[in-house]
Design a protein around this nucleic acid. Structure first.
Lengths: 139, 139
DNA sequence: TTAAATGCAAATCTTTTGCACTGGC
DNA sequence: GCCAGTGCAAAAGATTTGCATTTAA
């Protein structure tokens, strides 16, 4: 496809070592185009993509999200058995999960201080620590 | 059905305020019969039940697990998008998740000390805090 | 040119649901 | 006897996969 100028999204794709195809660029643009962090589900990203007029299939959205995760530029977050969320912020940080509407957002990492963590059992090491703070609307 | 002596499982069912049917008793027995805490998936509990010769359908296992959760005697844990885990320990405590084989186990709660937690956003309050420590086999 | 990426539909997997039947109370 | 509980099969929702077609390098 025709060369693009080096947008943030293009660089991000390059960092992932993935071929910059039309749909990957469109999805990358939606994910990190403005340099903000974002939390999406496959479905929400698919919806966003088609609203910009991009031609992408849902299967490709899934495959692309998976590819981004494997490339390490995206993080999958499990918070609610039914669906997967993807986070453009790949640093280890806590999340707020709004139980009312199933929305996920970042919690301020600097406000979380873990003084002590359980030791990993014999023969294992800690890969990561997921912290999800579940919120409900105050009554 | 015929009266049972008051096993731990029977008491546990009674505490949940659920009618002690044959299949609920069988499942309760597998879950808390020996007074130990256990982490199961619907599938694993179904498998365990049929290995004891109990007659239960998978749908009933799902419905029963859900009923136990709603009654507050069981806790659902989300750790891995694909399936739900259920924990007989209903106290708030951290978990170890073994990435290699998808097993879930309790982490010692007293070894986790959270010095500070992010403030809940305006209008919201913290319902609970899920901590999952992901483990990988040490290389 | 050629291997990688895509689109679509069908398949898979987990979980829920509708409905007729069974069994506690 | 009544109504909650159950079994089964079918449905539903999320994600993956097979395969023929397109496309970036």
């Amino acid at each position: 496809m025709k060369p693009e100028r080096a947008t943030y999204a293009t660089l991000w794709l390059g960092r992932a070592g993935l071929r910059p195809t039309r749909q990957r660029l469109a999805l990358a643009e939606l994910l990190v185009g403005d340099g903000q962090h974002r939390h999406v589900t496959a479905e929400s990203l698919f919806e966003a993509a088609r609203q910009t007029g991009a031609t992408v299939s849902l299967a490709t959205v899934y495959n692309t999200l998976r590819a981004f995760c494997e490339a390490g530029v995206l993080n999958e977050i499990t918070v609610d058995g039914s669906k997967s969320y993807f986070d453009t912020n790949t640093h280890d940080h806590p999340h707020f999960f709004w139980e009312d509407d199933g929305r996920l957002s970042d919690a301020p990492a600097e406000q979380l201080q873990i003084a002590r963590l359980p030791d990993a059992p014999e023969g294992a090491e800690i890969a990561s620590v997921d912290v999800v703070i579940r919120l409900r609307r105050k009554s």
